[in-house]
């Protein structure tokens, strides 16, 4: 089953074309890694998939579970099962992590025609998932990401993903800046969610994460296009030879 199909996608930010014809097909159950140098358009692709304002799609199409999603609001995409793990998670003082997550989960459940979870069931779910991500219970009652360390913020992203159980997760540099222990925790969280009916796109700058989350496909994004695709071995090759090697080698 095709989860996501991106065809000839062009997108601009403030009049500058960043994506210049991206093609990518992600089937259910697959993990795809998108690698590339800084400024190649990795984060833009992640944001376009999730519908952030300010990213203008000028050409091409994005189909998710046979639906064109480009005209959908971010919340509609989220309700259909798309999740974005942020490179820079936002702090929201005054809204507790728990309240935020409950509002989000119940929005998704309402969309799917399910009953909202009551406080007891919700708390049970949250505690189990927090344990998986080794998140301190104190952090749950604090404002969203307020006073969290960099590593805690990233773990909180994966924690939210674990609670919301998306069909398609797009993780935007979730590994950047993590120490090896935090990286293992994050990878474990992603691996736990691996299932035949779910897919993950991991946007990353570093090959290291892929030692812990083994991707089915690795793509190199450069200057707004996918210039090379391969299996997990491509990541090792990139690590050894650098991105400039791809440019000279071409898409063979």
């Amino acid at each position: 089953m095709t989860m996501l199909k991106i065809e000839g996608l062009h997108a601009s930010v403030a009049g500058n074309e960043i994506l210049k014809g991206v093609d990518l097909t992600v089937n259910a159950g697959e993990i795809h890694a998108i690698m590339g140098p800084n400024g190649s358009g990795k984060s833009t692709l992640a944001h376009v998939l999730c519908g952030r304002d300010g990213y203008e799609v000028t050409q091409g199409s994005v189909t998710y579970l046979d639906e064109d999603i480009l005209e959908m609001s971010p919340e509609d995409r989220a309700c259909r099962g798309i999740f974005l793990g942020f490179q820079y998670p936002v702090e929201i003082p005054g809204v507790s992590n728990t309240y935020f997550l409950k509002a989000a989960l119940n929005a998704l459940r309402t969309y799917r025609g399910e009953e909202e979870l009551d406080a007891v069931d919700f708390l049970g779910l949250v505690k189990a998932k927090a344990k998986l991500l080794q998140l301190d219970n104190d952090l749950l009652s604090r404002g969203v990401n307020v006073g969290f360390s960099g590593g805690e913020k990233k773990r909180n992203e994966i924690f939210q993903m674990a609670v919301l159980e998306p069909r398609l997760a797009v993780l935007d540099e979730t590994d950047s800046g993590l120490d090896i222990d935090a990286l293992k925790v994050v990878a474990n969280g992603v691996n736990k969610l691996r299932a035949p009916d779910r897919s993950t796109i991991i946007v990353t700058h570093y090959q290291r994460l892929l030692d812990y989350i083994v991707p089915d496909f690795v793509h190199v994004l450069q200057d707004g296009r996918i210039v090379k695709s391969g299996d997990k071995n491509l990541a090792h090759e990139l690590e050894a030879k650098g991105y400039s090697w791809v440019a000279t080698a071409g898409n063979s």
């Binding site: 999740f83 935020f100 509002a103």
Partner: peptide, 13 residues
């Protein structure tokens, strides 16, 4: 940024 963060989690605008 806060608004988008919440909406990306399914909370309507």
């Amino acid at each position: 940024a806060q608004l988008f963060y919440m909406r990306s989690r399914g909370i309507d605008e």
